[in-house]
Design a protein around this nucleic acid. Structure first.
Length: 450
RNA sequence: GGCCCCAUCGUCUAGUGGUCUAGGACAUCGGGUUUUCAUCCCGAAAACCGGGGUUCGACUCCCCGUGGGGUCACCA
């Protein structure tokens, strides 16, 4: 409803002039290294890059930085594809997809780096040293190297900070700082959007752009996700593997939404929105500079919200798949309305509704008083009940309470515990309707026989 | 330690000099609905790191402290 003009808070996007923008097509990338599982930090980086690319009608490139031979892990590459795909963060070019600036695995670009390093040696900008090739830095004492960061503004380092550093390792592989500059240049990356941990690498890279005769791209450094103690997010202190979130039963849309709100805020202060809306509203100007603490409490709430707004037919399928088709879709669909408001993750379906599929013995002592009396009366009544249908069950149960003068709360709790083995359950009347007459009576009887 | 980045409720955040007795969300606590647990609804408590400037006026701008973080590899 609000027109563009009425939105006062328009942040200037520091992208240079509109003409610059047209001249330079937006191309962004993420460059994970396949050294383990797919990391939530990779997803976070991908999210911002994806949004920036889509928003600006540009391309989003996936490049694998597999230059650390020792830390290479076998399924890591696939895990990255799976994780990003699960979240709906699709890329336009990559090792699996190809593209005209490939190859997209650095291990397949070794000859490119060698050629470039050779040129640097010829120009006396690099030299051999113990089997490696190092960059030769030569700066005047007061020189500065800096850039205008799209998120942080002007950042400057004393050029003296850029010492000589290795470009090509003795095993023929490039170092990160060298490969990243060559690849970003050759792949025509226009905006390097990455976490703030890379700020201190940037001076070296800028120096290299110049030495290699490339234009430097724009840089934007967003904040780093933090542990509770504010240190950089880590495996030790947080679940960081994307597959963990999937296994816990978080919905990809909820995880994405949660990540969106870390370091960025919706211009209308909305909390719940999808990836499409994020792309529409995204701007680097709304990215905060301070590192957000990664706290799952809000994700739990958000996931519950997403579960509640998912259509039953869809949610049914998700639960069916989540539990590897262990429970029948028909049964899940029947139970769903009873549990939808009560679960925060797909995984919780089992703890809440598992009793439908398998009887659970109540722990002794969790019954209310008179439970045997209640159960005996129940069995007697239910055995004489023909119509096993919601309205009738309600009528019969309340009638029973009335007739015998049972304490209502105690009576229903005892029925609940006898049937489900728990005091926290979906609505019990509706549950026994689904469970069926035979199973219900059988479970009640088994309580008395113990 | 050098260099660099950062600083609003417990947490995520709004805020770009006056609209701030600082707004929202999660979490927490209290209440309502309810045969449990949830959902839902209502309410409460909870923050501008400190000190100097600039200004008629600073949460907002500048400086200095303090605190936190990142980075200083033939890791990325």
């Amino acid at each position: 409803m609000a027109s563009q003009a009425s939105q006062k808070k328009v942040y200037p996007e520091p992208l240079g002039s509109a003409r610059d923008e047209l001249r330079r097509r937006v191309r962004v990338r993420i460059a994970p290294s396949p050294t383990g599982f797919a990391h939530v930090g990779t997803a976070y980086t991908a999210l911002f890059n994806y949004a920036f690319a889509r928003k600006n009608k540009g391309k989003f490139v996936l490049r694998l930085e597999d230059t650390d031979v020792k830390r290479q892990v076998k399924g890591a590459e696939q895990a990255i594809y799976d994780g990003l795909s699960w979240l709906g963060l699709g890329w336009d070019e990559g090792p699996d997809k190809g593209g005209k600036y490939g190859p997209y695995r650095q291990s397949e670009r070794l000859d490119i780096y060698k050629k470039r390093v050779q040129k640097l040696i010829e120009k006396d900008l690099a030299y051999q040293d113990e089997g490696a090739v190092k960059f030769k830095s030569k700066f005047k004492s007061k020189e500065k190297v800096g850039w205008n960061d799209l998120i942080r503004g002007k950042i400057e380092f004393p050029a003296s900070e850029v010492g000589d550093f290795v470009l090509l390792k003795s095993n023929g592989y490039p170092t990160y700082n060298f490969a990243v500059v060559i690849d970003d240049s050759l792949m025509k990356i226009s905006h390097v959007i990455r976490a703030e941990e890379h700020i201190s690498n940037t001076p070296r890279q800028i120096v290299l752009y110049k030495a290699l005769g490339f234009d430097k791209p724009e840089f934007a450094h967003f904040p780093l996700l933090r542990n509770e103690d504010k240190s950089k997010i880590s495996k030790r202190k947080n679940p960081v593997s994307l597959s963990w979130y999937k296994k816990q039963g978080y919905l990809p849309g909820a995880l994405i939404n949660f990540l969106c709100l870390l370091g960025w805020s919706h211009p209308e202060e909305k909390e719940i929105f999808d990836l499409k809306e994020f792309v529409e509203k995204f701007s680097l100007g709304r990215v905060r500079k301070a590192g957000p603490v990664f706290n799952l409490k809000k994700l739990d709430w958000m996931n519950g919200e997403y579960i509640r707004k998912t259509q039953n037919v869809k949610l049914k399928t998700q639960i069916f798949e989540f539990f590897s088709k262990k429970y029948s879709e028909e049964k899940i669909e029947e139970i769903l309305p009873l549990v939808k408001d009560r679960i925060k993750t797909l995984k919780e379906f089992e703890s809440l509704a598992g009793f439908f599929f398998k009887a659970r013995k109540p722990k002794p002592g969790i019954f209310e008083k008179d439970y045997k009396k209640h159960i005996r009366a129940l069995i007697k009544t239910l055995e004489n009940t023909e119509s096993w249908e919601g309205k009738n069950i309600d009528k019969i149960l309340f009638g029973l309470v009335d007739k015998n003068g049972f304490h209502t709360g105690g009576f229903f709790m005892n029925l609940r515990v006898a049937i489900t083995g728990s005091r926290f359950t979906p609505p019990i009347n509706e549950s026994i309707v689904i469970l069926g007459r035979e199973e219900t009576i059988s479970r009640l009887k088994s309580i008395l026989s113990n």
